[in-house]
């Protein structure tokens, strides 16, 4: 019935709440306590020296919020973020999205909703982080493709061998030196450019 093989747990985690003192905050803290989540509340801004690594969740006010409240750039929150929305005015929603909402809660907040928001936001945050890591890896590889082609071409000309043999030599050298093939290619190209040519003729 569900993709959760195990029951989602938040016991022992810590949340930041960025909202002025209000019944909304009381409703959130009551539910966090039921889930075993500790919390800190701040207003009007998060401390500049905040130890972000100590926190797992951020609840932020989308009604009165602005970029200057956070010690990080919009969209760069190092923890999952849940927007607390009163006004559904498009301008406010645009800001909440730009801040990087992984989930949202509509005010007023009653006796439920925090668990669902945390579960949904955790999934969104994890998949966002995994996608960002994959994207950065792919970008790196894409950038490496040109230098890979250049290194292969250099080895072909230098040793008068086929493209396949040049690539194989590059691959084996990378393995011997315990480097990624892209890093090995870059090293060879840079050595060639500086005149220090060394290839494995073995």
């Amino acid at each position: 019935m569900s993709q959760f093989k195990t029951t989602p747990k938040f016991d022992g985690q810590c949340a930041l709440i960025l909202h002025r003192p209000h019944p909304v905050v009381d409703a959130i803290t009551r539910q966090l306590t039921q889930l075993g989540v500790r919390y800190q509340t701040h207003w009007p801004e998060l401390p500049a020296d905040l130890d972000a690594a100590a926190f797992n969740h951020l609840f932020y006010d989308a009604d009165m919020g602005h970029d200057g409240q956070f010690p990080w750039a919009p969209g760069k929150a190092p923890m999952l973020s849940i927007a607390l929305i009163g006004s559904e005015a498009p301008g406010r929603l645009a800001w909440a999205i730009r801040l990087g909402a992984d989930a949202h809660l509509l005010k007023p907040i009653g006796s439920g909703g925090i668990f669902a928001a945390l579960v949904i936001a955790s999934q969104a945050f994890e998949s966002r982080a995994a996608q960002a890591a994959e994207l950065s890896d792919l970008r790196e590889r894409l950038a490496g493709r040109q230098v890979l082609a250049e290194a292969t071409a250099c080895l072909m000309m230098l040793d008068n061998i086929s493209a396949d043999a040049a690539y194989e030599r590059l691959r084996r050298t990378a393995m011997t030196e315990r480097k990624s093939i892209e890093a090995m290619a870059l090293q060879i190209v840079e050595q060639l450019r500086s005149g220090h040519v060394r290839t494995d003729r073995a």
Binding site: T6, T7, K9, F10, D11, Q34, L35, G36, F115
Partner: peptide
């Protein structure tokens, strides 16, 4: 522990 927050499942 209605949310099974603490109970080992």
């Amino acid at each position: 522990d209605p949310y099974l927050a603490y109970s080992p499942v």
